[in-house]
């Protein structure tokens, strides 16, 4: 295999005495969908936050496409193609759904220092935003304020914003969190579609979704990856069973 697209090397993050990320290493190959699973409190969101740049690690390095981005700002990482969706939906509640997506397009294009023309007169930008909104299945809810969307729809909007960034790497932090069975199944189908075109690091508790989507799975326990392999390998791995799956399945 070639060099990894995203590489995490010996990452450490301590909060007081607790090492939330404890000498963690991880490789995500270009084009793969890589699932990150682990019990609650294993440090999955902390790891994602460090990858995205919201939290700085105490030790170790993060490489994106061979570049060391450990000290790079969140905004720079976003512009270089790293797009994160949040575990708890994080949108602009007083903007319509399409305006949320349009802002993500605007951010990517970097033309925010425009003062006179109304933003919504930029037809190319609005078209791109609409495309992203329709892709996630929110087409007929485009004009609804984000604060009036249902929980499931807000999860979809998160994904639309991520896609509008035209990312090279998707960091999806529990995209199905809090969803009902039906929404969850729809999101799984959507992600199955997206994985053909994107490199994805997926944190998810829904094991059906994980095993359906992931090319490879890494298991995070107490801030460290204890195993990486194909879904079948992970299922068969005794350490994993003991540390994680075992708890869940009886």
């Amino acid at each position: 295999m070639s060099k990894p697209f995203l590489e995490v090397r010996n990452l450490v993050k301590r909060f007081g005495g607790l090492a939330a990320t404890n000498n963690c290493s991880l490789e995500v190959m270009r084009g793969e969908t890589h699932a990150l699973i682990g019990p609650n409190g294993a440090g999955k969101t902390t790891l994602i936050s460090q990858l995205q740049g919201q939290i700085r690690p105490d030790e170790g390095h993060i490489f994106l496409d061979g570049q060391d981005i450990t000290e790079t700002s969140m905004e720079r990482r976003a512009l270089s193609g790293m797009a994160r969706s949040f575990q708890i939906s994080s949108v602009f509640p007083k903007f319509t759904a399409i305006a949320n997506a349009a802002l993500a397009v605007q951010a990517r294009k970097g033309d925010s220092f425009r003062f006179l023309g109304a933003a919504w007169l930029d037809r190319a930008m609005m078209d791109e935003a609409r495309e992203a909104i329709e892709l996630v299945g929110l087409g007929d809810r485009a004009e609804v304020l984000a604060q009036d969307l249902s929980h499931g729809e807000r999860r979809q909007l998160e994904l639309a914003m991520v896609l509008a960034m035209r990312p090279s790497l998707l960091l999806l932090d529990e995209p199905m969190a809090g969803m009902g069975k039906q929404d969850s199944a729809r999101m799984t189908r959507l992600l199955a579609d997206l994985k053909k075109n994107y490199t994805i690091l997926l944190v998810e508790h829904d094991m059906n979704a994980v095993f359906a989507l992931a090319d490879r799975v890494s298991v995070l326990v107490a801030g460290r990856t204890i195993a990486t392999g194909s879904p079948a390998d992970i299922r068969a791995n005794d350490d994993v069973k003991a540390a994680y799956l075992g708890h869940r399945q009886h």
């Binding site: 969140m74 905004e75 797009a83 994160r84 993500a104 951010a107 990517r108 970097g110 914003m161 960034m165």
Partner: peptide
């Protein structure tokens, strides 16, 4: 936070 995450 969301604004930073999309690159602004």
């Amino acid at each position: 936070r969301r604004l930073s995450a999309i690159g602004i």
